[in-house]
Amino acid sequence: MYLNIVIFYLLIALTKAQEVYQQTNLDKLLTIKLYHSINSPDSYKLRGTIIIPSSKEKDLVIKQDKPLTDEEINDLDKAARNNGFYFLKAVAYKSTSEDQTKMATSFIEACSLVQSGLSDIIMISLDYYGNLIGISLTSTNPTCESSYFSTDSSNKLDTFNTTVKLISTTLGPVPDTLSYIQRMEQEKNEKLRGDKVDNRSFFGKYWMYIVPVVIFVLISNLASPEGMEQAAAR
């Protein structure tokens, strides 16, 4: 009877734990919808979606199926020639709820985007809990060359070749007292060990100083009797 109840509660606890686990996993999942706009930041259209299941880069999923329309390509080309901007807006959704959590916008010089052949790099910064802070857009060709437009680029660019980079917030470093203390201990031990090893006899340690002195004394002793004799002879 009691056993049954215990097992029942255990089961409930297990399912609860699983739920919690799933929820936390889901909580981490971040969906970012990308909208873009050419030349002015007020006519945003959906460009694609990025799904970030964890804050590791390799798990990223990018969906950008819709190619650019002819009109958009024309606009982009025009903006590139007129020193215009290409704007990108990111709206983040936590997968558990539909309401958006955070929004960030970024921009790039349109010519830079066109000249790179629509190969852009999106950097997404996340906070410590995996929420969106901001995005930034660069391309593989960061400088604009005015000579580029003289040759007519007939090859149509309509799909983005996007690289996504994640910059997540980490915990700040703390003063490393532990390894310092360890190092101190180690040095102390080494010193102690060094003291123990050197237990040779006094002569063993300082023979190199003693031997020359002894030789010198010997030589002077050898030399002096002659001198004495000479002195005595005079």
């Binding site: 970024s106 921009f107 950097m123 910064s125 906070d127 410590y128 802070i133 901001g134 995005i135 930034s136 857009l137 660069t138 910059i167 997540s168 917030t169 980490t170 915990l171 700040g172 470093p173």
Partner: peptide, 15 residues
Amino acid sequence: LDAITGSIYYSVVHR
């Protein structure tokens, strides 16, 4: 942060 592009290059939190 890069003040021109607004991209965050590094972020750290001290709790």
